[in-house]
Design a protein around this nucleic acid. Structure first.
Lengths: 232, 232
DNA sequence: AATTGACTGTTCTCTTTTGCACATTCTTAG
DNA sequence: CTAAGAATGTGCAAAAGAGAACAGTCAATT
């Protein structure tokens, strides 16, 4: 049983959100500094690290997508975040977390740059562009997590599902009123929204009847209609 | 009506959590760099900034305590975080947030160092100790918020209240099995836990009957007993 | 001492949400 | 093509929580 996705930070395929700096790649900075780093490839479903593993490296997604989930004592699972190209994850070890707080799993074929935490810390001092990118990522990540918290606190599961669908829709084709979502099961949606599958099923059918979404396998979202749900 | 405290990051009065670096003070770095910064004083209840205000500065708490809360369309309020000495807040503007996402209010007499965001960004490049401190704060803040999210997702309001009381107990005298909490109303507790006051009252009396806490005005927490609540 | 306002104790009803259970419909590996 | 495993569609009883109302307590002010 899964519970809740804290936030979606998987980005659309444009790295050009900063105007300049569109082709930022930490690897070149690590190369010039002669830093220990390696590139790892994962297949769909493969685990990058598991909850409880020793933590001494920071990951940087070059290609693909990764979900980060936490399991509690009762076996419930919550999808805490999803990461895409140019996202860092596993950076908690830099603040002294000795073990991984959750499990990172590739959801598509994924290429990851693995950096030893102490060396990354050191390089951040000398490589301003890397440092800027890292800080910017951290700030954005913070904002995202806090937004998810606010969503969780203020809104019902119906609204949270609507919001989650709209967030997922960002990764479909851009600038179209109707977006096709990446393939996700209702079970996964439940873990993203923070509710049960039966609840997700109920609302999905409700949204469908109202014409806010349609699906036969691929989920299609009518953004403007679904947005109405968010405003009561 | 209030809703939910995302996390408590108000620290006990020891700045020595990093072993070295116990007397870190960003002000000296700003001084040496000739940066525009000012020191502001606030009385209890005074607002540092309000939701919707233009955002172009970052705050650093020197003394006191600040609560950060968000109000939604229906007038519900959630206490998103509490900040204490050596915490930054309002740093979202560094990631492009143009307005404040919530209201910051002093909860005790408070001294705050205000830094213009662009100048702070610039100084982070040249002042490694400030940069380290900032990054460490960001990472710790992230971890804290994610822990709150996990707590919110996995636990009932009863457990969340127990956890909140234990967190608040950290600010009482150290190393004693029974701690006295700072004065908080049940209304405020409700906003910290993310539930209603009647619910808080119900559980507070339950905890009291079970001997986990006692109060006549001051709330006293028996840590080891209350911790039991967290583990079912 | 009386009044005011904030906080607490208590109760009750109405929703929302969970937790199951089970049938049905896809998918896919063999 | 077919059987097995996933994913989906329903329904329902029980639990948890929201919201609101109201009386009692306490502290501070005038």
């Amino acid at each position: 049983m899964q519970l809740r996705l804290f936030h979606l930070s998987m980005k659309p395929n444009n790295n050009k959100k900063n105007g300049k700096n569109s082709s930022f790649d930490p690897q070149v900075f690590l190369d010039t500094a002669g830093i220990s780093r390696k590139i790892a490839e994962y297949r769909r479903g493969e685990s990058v690290f598991a909850q409880g593993d020793a933590a001494d490296s920071v990951m940087y997604v070059q290609q693909g997508g990764v979900k980060f989930s936490v399991v509690n004592g009762s076996g419930k699972e919550a999808v805490v975040a999803m990461f895409g190209p140019s996202d860092f994850f596993g950076e908690g070890c830099m603040a002294g977390q000795a073990v991984r707080m959750g499990t990172a799993t590739a959801i598509t074929p994924t290429t990851i740059l693995v950096m030893e935490k102490n060396e990354l810390l050191r390089v951040l001092h000398s490589q301003h562009e890397l440092s800027d990118h890292f800080i910017r990522y951290m700030l954005a990540h913070n904002i995202r997590v806090e937004e998810d918290l606010v969503d969780q606190l203020f809104n019902s599961s119906e609204k949270r599902l609507a919001r989650t669908l709209l967030l997922l829709a960002r990764y479909g084709k851009q600038d179209q009123p109707i977006r096709i979502l990446p393939k996700v099961s209702q079970e996964t949606l439940a873990s993203m929204v923070g509710t049960t599958r039966s609840r997700v099923n109920f609302f999905m059918n409700k949204f469908r009847k109202l014409g806010f979404i349609e699906y036969n396998g691929k989920i299609k979202v009518n953004k403007s209609l679904l947005t109405v749900v968010l405003h009561e």
